[in-house]
Amino acid sequence: MNWRGIFTIVRKDISVLRYSPAVIWPIVIVVVIIMGLMPAVFTVPYYFVEIPENISLEEGLPDDLPEDLREIYDLIADPLLAQFGGMSPQEVLVRYFLVYVFAPMFLIVPVMTTSVIAADTFVGERERKPLEALLHSPLTDEELLLGKVLAAFIPGVVVSIIAFVIYSISVNALSWPIIGAIFFPTPIWLLILVWVMPGVAALGLGASVLVSSRVKTFQEAYQVSGILVLPIMGLFVGQIFGVFYFSLVLTLILGVIVWVVDVVLFWIALEMFSRSEMISRV
């Protein structure tokens, strides 16, 4: 392996990212909205809501629970509701939304970061032309692919970690008036961070690499990230309707599924990726 060549590509691709507003802005907007703003939407209103103090969930939902609150409680999966026993309704809502319902939202960050960057470095670079000279360089097809993949994967993971930190800070700060303790990140979120997130980053990347040989423009490649957000939204909606929730076991399994799909995607990508194919489309 020609590591010098590989890291030359990685360094170059990452260093030019800052000149690509089409890449930077979607990422910044998603991180700010999902990781900074959304937590506020699900905490600040509760500061002002009158809710009976003495609800005990141990024996099911009490009869005097206000109607809107009952509707939300009804949605929460039973085993999860049991874990919330003894907490005030505000705390239950904050934990339910910010710890569980929002977990899939966090996964949008790695998917979208790596797929937008890959769309730019694989397809955008071909559109802008500098790819051709690169294809004439001595790197092998595998080295070229690895360089380009790392150049999207590394920023994807770094941006996700930053988003995670922002989210941790905003969740703890915004729920302080309600919970009064630093409770985030929870073990499940840490598992999501170290196990699921890198897998999901690779997923966005693998999918972009595969479509990169089929599409002509950056915009087309970019739309792949839109498609990948659908299964993530599925996880989101599934929790809202109480079908499942992010338990430790589910998170572990989810990670396994993601990594298996990754292996398949990259195996296909490695088979398909050839400079001969790439240059035919320059």
């Binding site: 030019v16 690509s20 500098p130 790819l131 051709e132 004439h136």
Partner: peptide
């Protein structure tokens, strides 16, 4: 080998 491609294929941002 060295190649001068038909379009210069340089990175304009660098």
């Amino acid at each position: 080998t060295g190649v001068l491609t038909e379009t210069p294929s340089l990175d304009d941002r660098l």
